[in-house]
Computed example of a mutant assay.
Amino acid sequence: MSKNIVWHQASISKQDRRQKNNHHSCILWFTGLSASGKSTIANEIAKALFHQNVQQYVLDGDNIRHGLNHDLGFTDHDRTENIRRIGEVAKLFVDNGQIVLTAFISPFQADRELVRTIVEQDEFIEVYVECSVETCENRDPKGLYEKAKKGEIQN
Protein backbone atom coordinates (compact mmCIF):
# COMPACT_ATOMS: atom_id res chain seq x y z
CA MET A 1 0.00 0.00 0.00
CA SER A 2 1.27 3.47 -0.81
CA LYS A 3 2.40 5.65 2.06
CA ASN A 4 0.56 8.54 0.38
CA ILE A 5 -2.88 7.09 1.12
CA VAL A 6 -4.51 8.52 4.23
CA TRP A 7 -7.87 7.45 5.64
CA HIS A 8 -10.42 10.27 5.44
CA GLN A 9 -12.74 10.26 8.42
CA ALA A 10 -16.42 10.50 7.42
CA SER A 11 -18.48 13.36 8.82
CA ILE A 12 -21.33 10.98 9.72
CA SER A 13 -20.40 8.08 11.98
CA LYS A 14 -21.61 4.50 11.88
CA GLN A 15 -23.27 5.10 15.24
CA ASP A 16 -25.09 8.17 13.85
CA ARG A 17 -26.38 6.09 10.93
CA ARG A 18 -27.46 3.27 13.23
CA GLN A 19 -29.30 5.71 15.44
CA LYS A 20 -31.11 7.23 12.48
CA ASN A 21 -31.97 3.78 11.10
CA ASN A 22 -33.09 2.53 14.52
CA HIS A 23 -31.13 -0.71 14.15
CA HIS A 24 -27.70 -2.27 14.45
CA SER A 25 -25.66 -2.90 11.32
CA CYS A 26 -23.88 -6.15 10.60
CA ILE A 27 -22.95 -8.80 8.08
CA LEU A 28 -25.07 -11.94 7.86
CA TRP A 29 -22.65 -14.23 6.01
CA PHE A 30 -24.42 -17.19 4.37
CA THR A 31 -22.03 -19.98 3.37
CA GLY A 32 -22.62 -23.46 1.99
CA LEU A 33 -22.57 -25.57 -1.14
CA SER A 34 -23.75 -24.34 -4.52
CA ALA A 35 -27.55 -24.81 -4.68
CA SER A 36 -27.86 -25.12 -0.90
CA GLY A 37 -30.24 -22.16 -0.77
CA LYS A 38 -27.95 -19.37 0.45
CA SER A 39 -29.23 -16.73 -1.96
CA THR A 40 -32.85 -17.77 -1.56
CA ILE A 41 -32.67 -17.53 2.23
CA ALA A 42 -30.72 -14.25 2.16
CA ASN A 43 -33.25 -12.68 -0.22
CA GLU A 44 -36.25 -13.82 1.83
CA ILE A 45 -34.71 -12.36 4.99
CA ALA A 46 -33.89 -9.15 3.11
CA LYS A 47 -37.51 -8.90 1.97
CA ALA A 48 -38.79 -9.35 5.53
CA LEU A 49 -36.33 -6.73 6.83
CA PHE A 50 -37.32 -4.33 4.04
CA HIS A 51 -40.98 -4.58 5.09
CA GLN A 52 -39.88 -3.72 8.64
CA ASN A 53 -38.06 -0.60 7.36
CA VAL A 54 -34.64 -2.09 8.09
CA GLN A 55 -31.86 -0.87 5.81
CA GLN A 56 -30.38 -3.95 4.13
CA TYR A 57 -28.76 -5.21 0.95
CA VAL A 58 -27.93 -8.65 -0.48
CA LEU A 59 -24.51 -9.31 -2.00
CA ASP A 60 -24.82 -12.48 -4.09
CA GLY A 61 -21.82 -14.46 -5.33
CA ASP A 62 -22.85 -14.68 -8.97
CA ASN A 63 -24.03 -11.07 -9.12
CA ILE A 64 -20.72 -9.81 -7.72
CA ARG A 65 -18.81 -11.87 -10.30
CA HIS A 66 -20.70 -10.07 -13.10
CA GLY A 67 -19.11 -6.77 -12.08
CA LEU A 68 -16.69 -6.12 -9.22
CA ASN A 69 -15.09 -9.57 -9.40
CA HIS A 70 -15.50 -10.32 -13.11
CA ASP A 71 -11.73 -10.74 -13.38
CA LEU A 72 -11.59 -13.65 -10.92
CA GLY A 73 -11.88 -17.37 -11.60
CA PHE A 74 -12.29 -20.24 -9.17
CA THR A 75 -8.74 -21.15 -8.23
CA ASP A 76 -7.97 -21.15 -4.52
CA HIS A 77 -6.18 -17.81 -4.92
CA ASP A 78 -9.08 -16.25 -6.83
CA ARG A 79 -11.63 -17.56 -4.32
CA THR A 80 -9.63 -15.95 -1.51
CA GLU A 81 -9.43 -12.63 -3.36
CA ASN A 82 -13.16 -12.81 -4.15
CA ILE A 83 -14.01 -13.12 -0.46
CA ARG A 84 -11.47 -10.45 0.56
CA ARG A 85 -13.07 -7.95 -1.82
CA ILE A 86 -16.58 -8.87 -0.68
CA GLY A 87 -15.51 -8.46 2.93
CA GLU A 88 -14.31 -4.94 2.23
CA VAL A 89 -17.53 -4.04 0.40
CA ALA A 90 -19.64 -5.58 3.18
CA LYS A 91 -17.71 -3.52 5.73
CA LEU A 92 -18.72 -0.35 3.86
CA PHE A 93 -22.38 -1.35 4.15
CA VAL A 94 -21.93 -1.96 7.89
CA ASP A 95 -20.26 1.45 8.23
CA ASN A 96 -23.28 2.88 6.42
CA GLY A 97 -25.55 1.46 9.13
CA GLN A 98 -27.05 -1.34 7.06
CA ILE A 99 -27.46 -5.06 7.42
CA VAL A 100 -25.66 -6.72 4.54
CA LEU A 101 -26.60 -10.28 3.70
CA THR A 102 -23.93 -12.11 1.74
CA ALA A 103 -24.43 -15.38 -0.13
CA PHE A 104 -21.09 -16.96 -1.05
CA ILE A 105 -19.88 -20.54 -1.13
CA SER A 106 -16.74 -19.25 0.66
CA PRO A 107 -15.24 -22.70 1.28
CA PHE A 108 -12.17 -21.58 3.22
CA GLN A 109 -12.56 -20.88 6.93
CA ALA A 110 -9.49 -18.62 6.82
CA ASP A 111 -11.21 -16.34 4.28
CA ARG A 112 -14.34 -16.03 6.43
CA GLU A 113 -12.14 -15.34 9.46
CA LEU A 114 -10.39 -12.56 7.57
CA VAL A 115 -13.74 -10.87 6.94
CA ARG A 116 -14.67 -11.37 10.59
CA THR A 117 -11.49 -9.51 11.63
CA ILE A 118 -12.15 -6.38 9.55
CA VAL A 119 -15.40 -5.57 11.35
CA GLU A 120 -16.19 -5.25 15.04
CA GLN A 121 -16.87 -8.36 17.11
CA ASP A 122 -20.68 -8.05 17.03
CA GLU A 123 -20.86 -7.22 13.32
CA PHE A 124 -20.26 -10.62 11.69
CA ILE A 125 -22.73 -13.49 11.91
CA GLU A 126 -21.83 -16.61 9.97
CA VAL A 127 -24.71 -18.81 8.84
CA TYR A 128 -23.89 -22.22 7.41
CA VAL A 129 -26.69 -23.36 5.13
CA GLU A 130 -26.53 -27.11 5.58
CA CYS A 131 -27.72 -29.12 2.62
CA SER A 132 -26.58 -32.55 1.43
CA VAL A 133 -24.57 -32.85 -1.76
CA GLU A 134 -27.29 -35.13 -3.11
CA THR A 135 -29.96 -32.46 -2.60
CA CYS A 136 -27.75 -29.78 -4.15
CA GLU A 137 -27.04 -32.05 -7.14
CA ASN A 138 -30.74 -32.70 -7.58
CA ARG A 139 -31.52 -28.96 -7.48
CA ASP A 140 -28.53 -27.90 -9.61
CA PRO A 141 -30.29 -24.78 -11.01
CA LYS A 142 -27.14 -23.61 -12.79
CA GLY A 143 -26.13 -27.05 -14.09
CA LEU A 144 -22.78 -26.81 -12.30
CA TYR A 145 -22.79 -30.29 -10.77
CA GLU A 146 -23.61 -31.85 -14.13
CA LYS A 147 -20.87 -29.82 -15.86
CA ALA A 148 -18.38 -30.81 -13.15
CA LYS A 149 -19.25 -34.52 -13.58
CA LYS A 150 -18.66 -34.19 -17.31
CA GLY A 151 -15.31 -32.47 -16.70
CA GLU A 152 -16.48 -29.27 -18.37
CA ILE A 153 -15.63 -27.10 -15.36
CA GLN A 154 -12.97 -27.33 -12.67
CA ASN A 155 -12.62 -26.06 -9.10
Rank of each mutant, 00 (worst) to 15 (best):
V133A: 11
G32W: 06
Q15K: 14
S13Q: 02
G67P: 07
E134Y: 02
N63P: 02
F108E: 06
G143I: 12
W29N: 04
G143W: 09
F93M: 13
A103N: 00
V115L: 02
K3M: 14
N22D: 11
V127D: 04
D62F: 03
D62V: 05
D78L: 01
Q109S: 13
E134C: 02
A48L: 09
H66L: 03
A103T: 00
T135K: 14
Q121H: 13
Y57L: 03
H66Q: 08
S25K: 01
P107L: 11
G143Y: 11
L92K: 09
Q154H: 15
D140H: 03
T135A: 10
L92V: 11
I83D: 01
Y128V: 15
A103E: 01
T102D: 05
D95W: 14
C136P: 08
L28H: 09
Y145T: 09
S13W: 02
N43Q: 13
G67D: 07
V58Q: 11
Q121D: 14
K14W: 01
M1F: 10
T117A: 02
S2F: 11
N69E: 09
W29I: 02
I27F: 13
V89Y: 10
G37P: 09
I45A: 03
K149N: 13
C26N: 05
D16W: 00
S132Y: 15
Q109P: 09
E152K: 00
T80P: 00
E126S: 03
S25Q: 00
T102S: 12
Q9F: 07
S36F: 08
I86S: 10
S34K: 07
K150T: 00
R84K: 14
D76Y: 04
R112V: 02
E137F: 06
R18C: 15
Y145W: 09
G61I: 04
S36L: 05
R139C: 06
T80A: 06
A110I: 12
L92W: 08
V94S: 10
A110H: 15
S106H: 08
C131V: 06
C26R: 15
F108G: 05
L59E: 03
S34V: 05
R85T: 04
K91S: 04
N96Y: 08
Q19R: 13
H24I: 08
A46P: 00
Q98E: 03
E88M: 12
K38E: 03
Q56I: 08
D71I: 06
G73I: 13
A110P: 03
